[in-house]
């Protein structure tokens, strides 16, 4: 079995490298892809990162050709193993220093470096080692043991499929959909749970009270708490009178069980508390509406 895997490894590695190499070398998205990799920071320049990615693509294509043409030679296999080890090192470095960067591995799918990126790099390294040990050409192996070869190739295809995101829609999505159909949606249904704070904020923002108080409000939601059936939402604001501008807490109290679905036009209690004197500011500061001039226009 092991010689069979070894002898077919050049074919599998060559096909994989040909696809990923061609994608990097000729792909129209390579520049955009390179921009999101850690290469940009290492090489200090987007164009150099693109060039580096295309060069790697060229090396992959050359290795693929060598593996296909002279599968028994030691060098292409060793080259592939070194490339795989290099990929693994690059991924480890990128993950340690810029975890949000893209891997730039397969030229089609982007995304943070994850288990699959490492699995792919590991497979290339392992495939290279196996290919270096090949003692017969893959084409003679195919004709000599067609059944066993088909099995090995099928297993390799499944492995690569699992390690690549590019073909997820073919097998992974249908599988996940089927699982949800059988076992149900695993996410919480939360029937009868309390109304989320975000839903109360949404209710407030839909209300007349919000519309009336908006000219006074300056911050986004500053604090919130529940008390005796009320949900209190606190914002920071300011109002101006003859004595100048005063900082206030703008407080809204809403029934904590209501949402926009159940109360399209809710009653909301609004209070303004002067932050300096801690006194309730008469709601007359809300009417008439303070006159405010327009925002500066973009130039």
């Amino acid at each position: 079995m092991i010689p069979l895997v070894s002898n077919l490894a050049p074919l599998v590695c060559a096909l994989l490298l040909a696809v990923t190499g061609a994608g990097k070398l000729f792909g129209r998205q390579t520049a955009q892809l390179a921009a999101n990799t850690v290469l940009v920071r290492v090489l200090n320049d987007g164009r150099r990162a693109t060039l580096a990615l295309r060069t790697v693509g060229g090396v992959e294509l050359a290795l693929a050709a060598a593996l296909l043409a002279s599968p028994e030679a030691l060098l292409p296999g060793v080259g592939t193993a070194v490339l795989g080890a290099g990929f693994t090192g690059y991924l480890a470095y990128a993950r340690a220093t810029a975890p949000e960067s893209s891997c730039g591995c397969s030229a089609a799918a982007e995304g943070p470096i994850g288990v699959r990126s490492f699995a792919r790099a590991g497979l290339v390294a392992a495939g290279g080692v196996a290919a270096a040990g090949a003692d017969a050409a893959w084409w003679s192996q195919l004709t000599r043991r067609p059944g066993g070869s088909a099995l090995v190739l099928a297993a390799a295809a499944v492995l690569l499929l699992c390690a690549s995101a590019d073909l997820d829609h073919v097998w992974l999505l249908p599988l996940r959909k089927a699982r949800i159909k059988v076992f149900g949606n695993p996410l919480p249904s939360a029937a009868g749970e309390r109304v989320p704070v975000a839903a109360t904020v949404q209710l407030l923002e839909n209300s007349l009270a919000w519309q009336t108080a908006m000219p006074v409000v300056r911050s986004a939601l500053l604090d919130h708490w529940d008390d005796e059936g009320w949900r209190v939402l606190r914002y920071a604001g300011s109002y101006r009178d003859a004595r100048g501008t005063h900082p206030v807490s703008v407080l809204f109290a809403l029934d904590l069980t209501l949402t926009v679905d159940t109360a399209p036009n809710p009653a909301v209690r609004v209070s303004l508390i002067d932050e300096e004197t801690e006194e309730v500011v008469p709601s007359s500061v809300l009417t008439p509406v303070p006159v405010r001039t327009a925002l500066p226009l973009a130039t």
Binding site: W210, Q211, M214, P215, A294, L295, L297, A298
Partner: peptide, 17 residues
């Protein structure tokens, strides 16, 4: 192209490109 985008409730307006 430039547009003025105005919040329906507050009237707050911003000019965008």
């Amino acid at each position: 192209a430039v547009m003025n985008v105005r919040h329906q409730c507050s009237g707050a307006t911003v000019c965008v490109t």
